[in-house]
Structures are given as structure tokens and as C-alpha cells.
């Protein structure tokens, strides 16, 4: 089994445990992604977003949210294996092995930066198969209700999969994913204010993110007291962009220092109109979050003061 598929299985198990710990109906399916699996695909990501949405809903209704304490290591040990180079116990010396430190694939000039981690896991795969084979838990039947695309990007609309566990089957079947229920990743719906969180096309600042940053940099006024005392800050402002592209109801959702909040809100209110978000072919009200940085002037090396020696640029050109 490819390493990506192993990662996929382990992440799926983590998601299942999160759902179970929080009483969330979780429903998954055999992954049908046909591209090179890096361990996550649009369907898997959609399941994460679904869980986040459910956890947020629980949190809003005052229910406790249980998150911490799931050990990927334990999942590995229990049969969904991958690579393991855990820190060793005191004074324990590992046997010699080929280095499995991380190799990062090169970034192509101007290309995206999500890269595959190329750590080899081949030494673990033989055990996986045995353990899985011994567990005899396999999927016998997959029922698909609704539409599902095989090719990404898959729009998670109206997908409803139900899967039944079957009898022990051949080794080949045993590599399939064990499932525990049903997931419904339905269409996106607006909240009580008529605003969407998940849309087909997000609202865009005219000219893009760089222009927005330029606008922020040009218009922000550093609060005098914080400037005098050398205090920096970061503020996250959430608002929605209506169907006319207007910025509506900005509010602070996270802030390092409340002294910066008013100025952050003031600048966001100055934003020109966005291109509205689109869902199902229509312009819709859509939430957006931006970060406003309050930074003191820096030197050419990007550090605030000379007390930290940021040496990257000193060395990056000498080879």
C-alpha cells in the first residue's frame, strides 16, 4: 500500500475518534480519490471541515468539546502503521539505520509549496498487512446514495455514503478502510444572518491579497502609546462581504492586544468593495477573515532590533 494511503487511514481513524469523543455522527467511506494520494484529498479535507463545523456548533450550544489525547502513535501501534522515529527512551540507543530525517522536495520556481514528505516507510509495511489481515475487519459493501465524483476537486454537495462492514475477506480486501457509520456532507447553507461560510468562490479584494496588504499598510495608524512603548500586535477581523461586494459588520475574533482593535476595525471599514463570493452560480453573502499586523519599523533583515541575529540572508547567497 502506498504511504499516502496509510497516512489517509490513520488520519481517518483520528477523525473517527474525535467524532466519537464528541458524539458527532461521523460517517466516512472508502477513499475514491484517484490521484496520487498524499494522505489527504478533497474528500478527507471535507470531513475535517465537517468535524470542525460540528465542534463549533457544539461549542456554541455550550457543550464541552473533547479534543486532546488521541495518540497517532497508538493508532500506528494498533495496526495502522506508518513510519515511527519517536524519541527514544532514556539511554536507549537505536540500532543503526538508514537516516530517515526529512527530505523536502524542491520547490519549483513559482510553484505551489505543499510538498510531499519523502520519508521512506517501506520497513513498516510488511507488519501492517499481517495485522490488518489478522483483524479481519473489511468492507464488504459500499452503497452510494447521491452523486460522487471520482476526480478532484470534488464539490461536497449532497454526498451521502453509507457503508456496511462485511465478513472477513481476502487479503486484498483487507486493505480497505474500516468504517463506523455514515457521513453526510451536504450542501452549504447560510447561517441565520443569510451569510455563507463555505462557497464555491471566495470574495476577493480588488487586485488580490497583495493589494489588500498594501492598502492596510498605507492606511494603518499605529496607536501612539503602543508605538512609544514598542508594543506590537496582531488582530484578526472577521466580516462578511455582501452580494454587492460591501464589507459588512467587521468584528474582532482574535487579538493580541485590545489597544489595536479599534484601529484594525477602522481600516477594515475603509476597504473598497470586494468581488462577492459565489455559490451555486449565484452571488452570496460570504464570511471572510483578515489579519491586521501592527509592526514596528524593521531593519533590512526583517528583524525589529539588532538584539536578534537573523542571519539567513547573510548566508543564502554564498554558495
Amino acid at each position: 500500500m502506498a504511504r499516502g494511503k496509510q497516512t489517509c487511514k490513520i488520519l481517518k481513524e483520528i477523525r473517527r475518534q474525535i467524532a466519537e469523543a464528541n458524539g458527532i455522527e461521523f460517517v466516512t467511506s472508502e477513499c475514491r480519490y484517484k490521484g496520487d494520494c498524499l494522505g489527504s484529498c478533497p474528500k478527507c479535507e471535507a470531513e475535517v471541515r465537517y468535524l470542525e463545523q460540528q465542534l463549533r456548533a457544539r461549542s456554541l450550544t455550550g457543550k464541552a468539546v473533547a479534543l486532546a489525547g488521541i495518540s497517532a502513535g497508538m493508532i500506528l501501534m494498533s495496526g495502522c502503521s506508518g513510519t515511527s522515529t519517536k524519541p527514544q527512551a532514556n539511554n536507549e540507543i537505536l540500532e543503526e539505520k538508514i537516516s530517515d530525517t526529512e527530505v523536502v522536495k524542491e520547490i519549483e520556481e513559482g510553484e505551489a509549496t505543499i510538498l510531499e514528505d519523502t520519508v521512506s516507510v517501506s520497513h513498516d509495511l510488511s507488519t501492517i498487512k499481517e495485522e490488518e489481515s489478522a483483524s479481519k475487519r473489511v468492507i464488504k459493501e459500499i452503497t452510494i446514495v447521491g452523486d460522487i465524483d471520482d476526480e478532484p476537486p470534488m464539490e461536497e454537495k449532497g454526498i451521502c455514503l453509507s457503508v456496511k462492514e462485511g465478513d472477513p475477506a481476502s487479503d486484498e480486501d483487507s486493505t480497505k478502510v474500516r468504517v463506523h457509520g455514515e457521513i453526510r456532507i451536504g450542501p452549504s447553507y447560510p447561517d441565520e444572518k443569510g451569510v455563507y461560510d463555505r462557497v464555491d468562490k471566495s470574495p476577493e479584494y480588488p487586485g488580490g491579497a497583495e493589494e489588500m496588504q498594501r492598502f492596510i499598510d498605507q492606511h494603518i495608524e499605529y496607536p501612539e502609546e503602543q508605538l512609544r512603548e514598542g508594543i506590537q500586535g496582531i488582530v484578526f477581523v472577521k466580516f462578511y462581504v455582501d452580494t454587492m461586494g460591501r464589507v459588512c459588520h467587521p468584528e474582532i475574533i482574535r487579538s493580541k492586544n485590545p489597544a489595536f482593535n479599534q484601529e484594525a476595525l477602522r481600516v477594515v471599514r475603509l476597504f473598497p468593495n470586494f468581488t462577492p463570493g459565489m455559490y451555486d452560480g449565484n452571488k452570496v453573502n460570504t464570511y471572510k477573515t483578515v489579519t491586521i499586523n501592527f509592526k514596528l519599523p524593521t531593519d533590512d533583515y526583517g528583524t525589529r532590533k539588532a538584539d536578534l541575529q537573523d542571519t539567513e540572508r547573510d548566508t543564502s547567497s554564498d554558495s
Binding site: A72, G73, L76, T83, K105, T113, I114
Partner: peptide, 12 residues
Amino acid sequence: GIARHRLSTDGD
């Protein structure tokens, strides 16, 4: 580079 979903490489 950014490599996601490394499992049990640095702790659990």
C-alpha cells in the same frame, strides 16, 4: 517546503 501529515515523527 511544507510537508503535512507527518505521523509520529516528532512525538505522538
